[in-house]
Design a binder for these strands. Sequence first.
DNA 1: CGAAGAGACGACAGCGCTGTCAAGTTGTCG
DNA 2: CGACAACTTGACAGCGCTGTCGTCTCTTCG
Lengths: 350, 350
Amino acid sequence: MKSPPPRIVASQSPRPKIDDVAARAGVSIKTVSRVLNDEPNVRAETRARVKEAVAALNYQPDFSARSLAGRRSYMLGLLYDTVSEGYLNKLQRGILETCGELGYHLLVERCDNEDVDAGRRVSGIAARTRVDGFIVTPPLSDNADILAALDAARTPYVLVEPAYTSDATPWVDIDGVAAADMLTTRLIDLGHRRIAFIKGLESHGAALLRFDGFNAALSRAGVEVDPALVKQGDFTFATGLTIGRGLLALAERPTAVFAANDDMAAGVIAAASEVGLQVPTDLSVVGFDDSLAAEIVTPQLTTVRQPIEEMGRAAVAFLVAASRGRLEEGDGAGRHAFEIVVRKSDGPPP
Amino acid sequence: MKSPPPRIVASQSPRPKIDDVAARAGVSIKTVSRVLNDEPNVRAETRARVKEAVAALNYQPDFSARSLAGRRSYMLGLLYDTVSEGYLNKLQRGILETCGELGYHLLVERCDNEDVDAGRRVSGIAARTRVDGFIVTPPLSDNADILAALDAARTPYVLVEPAYTSDATPWVDIDGVAAADMLTTRLIDLGHRRIAFIKGLESHGAALLRFDGFNAALSRAGVEVDPALVKQGDFTFATGLTIGRGLLALAERPTAVFAANDDMAAGVIAAASEVGLQVPTDLSVVGFDDSLAAEIVTPQLTTVRQPIEEMGRAAVAFLVAASRGRLEEGDGAGRHAFEIVVRKSDGPPP
DNA sequence: CGAAGAGACGACAGCGCTGTCAAGTTGTCG
DNA sequence: CGACAACTTGACAGCGCTGTCGTCTCTTCG
């Protein structure tokens, strides 16, 4: 064991406050406040002097004082359920990046979608915490209790991939129906007719949309859906595996499987490998999300990529704009482009 | 497309403040404050009356006011680098769970370990934000600048898996050296002699410890390490794949590969499958972390499981105890038990 | 050149809590 | 039963900012 590197502890000078800056710049604290908040009506020369003082003292405004006195807390809340943890890394990364650029901080809160108290929890957080806005991920973005709590608290929020969008509610998403439709159509074009679908959680609206797209593509192509090939999963690798085994044990098994997310698709691939079926020669498998699992699995998964990071950034941009008075038309929230990522897990039916 | 479910918006009554509670309970606001903070010297009967009023009004203390006036903010900070995102989900889950139980909130902040300004960023966060403590994940937990900033800010913190531990600094970890040693020994016992090691990032102290354990086991067994079999990775699937290809193209290729984390191990498995080698028949592969990748990959990975969630909980418990005056001996922080998870990716050499 | 309007800036009052300290109340013990 | 200690409680002053509003200095234009 080596010894730890030396660590220098700077001697602590008391944290400067706005008064110190004001004194040094020879102005009132209110003027300092104006400069800090980019308010108008400060002479350029004065502004420069204040900025110099801020820099010299390395002054950092106190968030608690700010949010107590003012309306804004410079803090955003992220609400998520364990189910969307696959999402979480990317989304959080995007959010944090933009937060950093804009001087915001992120409060992360996990909510259980099944919890009857979820609404109350959220209103508690909103009330105590004074965040400037919430970013709500699926399936919470479809949870009526939570949305009601948010409305009641009059805190702005952005929904990530809600099942239903309306002009009244800002959101970010992709066209999940179109994406699933497109991927299904690809399978059909490859020649598949017996295509299974593994659904995500019922409560997860975005996953429902994927199923809608799947059905739309099939019916347009005049292919009938065999109910025996539609299964209910819960987004985990484990259910993908279990359901995959079931599907492959069928007398008339599917030639392709569309799973509502990549983890379940990976489970299907594992199931195939258990019974010695080759993917994609004997069975095509596609997923949704382009998560880490899609890359790691052998063969790599054909899937739908959502620009999750970008969506996170957009959500933050929107919320920040909203909290800074008026936002421009179409600023931030809205629909993003998806992409079908073709890899090695699908091909023509055997 | 279906129509959205109806949403009820409760009419908004102004948020109750401590004065309202005081008035209803017929006491001073200070007494309410005492009850809220579980301070002593309040008659049981008075306490009950206050609690009744709090419940009746659904009063929630304001965090900003609290942290401005008092010493505690009831907020913890989580510092992480993108590298540790594999970790992040589990750790964050554990942290959030305990935070919830204790009435704390979590501020998440991403730091780039390579950023020369990381120290300044952290002191900025500490200064502005008044968090009660920080949880620092690798590799930031080995970053001298950040630790210095934390010390200077006099904010308590807990390091997750630091390379060097000292009594002066609270930490949570597992015995990474012992874990790697044990897993390596398993490989040796299976009969392997040519064992490759894929290192993690240099800056990642915990990964260094894993390499130490690897070397310890080999030298104890009298097996010499072939330098050609030690490679530098960066924790990603991609490097695992690349390095795996290189290793397998060697004239005298290894019979086993130990990767410093699961993602890289998954890459090696993918490389093996490319050249038609069977794992574990032709090649054994083991990883570290028991991440999602370990389960998803075929064959499933033999790896080391860290109780990440539990470590997160312990970190929070420690920080909260620390901020509530004195903590008991050995409260929270410390060393946790690891576990070797034997799955299907290793076996005797060919 | 004077009146009106706009731009710059400061004084001051809180935001909603907690810490301090002093006052009032009850209990204890010789 | 009185003196003193221990427990309860409240008044009040901030914590470090921002919002409001008033004052004063420039412009601008008839």
